[in-house]
Design a protein around this nucleic acid. Structure first.
Length: 139
DNA sequence: GCCAACGTTGGC
DNA sequence: GCCAACGTTGGC
């Protein structure tokens, strides 16, 4: 099982909208970046991810799970672009902000910090645990 | 609102 | 295949 981070802007796709989709989940569509797409192609059913909001919140606000593996992005006819479906699992009890991550030396190598613009990122098991601890999420 | 970082495009 | 120009993202 692997861990990931999905980045969104609240004005485009909020955590509330994600939760409203329930267990059926929703396509993580609109990604037009090869690196991000390649990560989505590696995802397996049951993989977990952080739901991160850029811009205003700049924080991990929830936990999501991959509920459909990579398939064509329905928002384009361009067959280069695939996406997965994700569903909300639980809110992060305490939002883990970017500042909190930057303040922890153990997270210095995180893609979130080193590759700020990448919209879908891998998260190591160690990073996952550290952030869950900071957010008060125990699975 | 600014600007640095970075991915993409297009001319050669 | 290189690289300059350009557009977009996202933190501040």
């Amino acid at each position: 099982m692997k861990y990931w981070l999905f980045k969104s802007e609240a004005s485009t796709w909020s955590w509330e909208q994600q939760v409203a989709k329930g267990d059926a989940g929703e396509e993580w569509d609109g990604v037009r970046n090869y690196q991000a797409r390649n990560f989505m192609r590696q995802m397996k059913l049951g993989d977990l991810g952080f739901f991160y909001l850029s811009q205003k919140e700049k924080a991990v606000v929830g936990i999501v799970e991959v509920c459909a593996e990579a398939h064509p992005d329905s928002t384009t006819d361009d067959d280069r672009w695939d996406c997965v479906d994700i569903k909300a699992v639980a809110p992060m009890p305490t939002h883990v902000t970017l500042a909190m991550c930057k303040g922890d030396d153990r997270l210095a190598e995180m893609a979130l910090i080193k590759s700020a613009r990448l919209s879908v990122q891998p998260v190591t098991a160690d990073e996952w645990q550290i952030i869950c601890d900071m957010g008060g999420y125990s699975g």
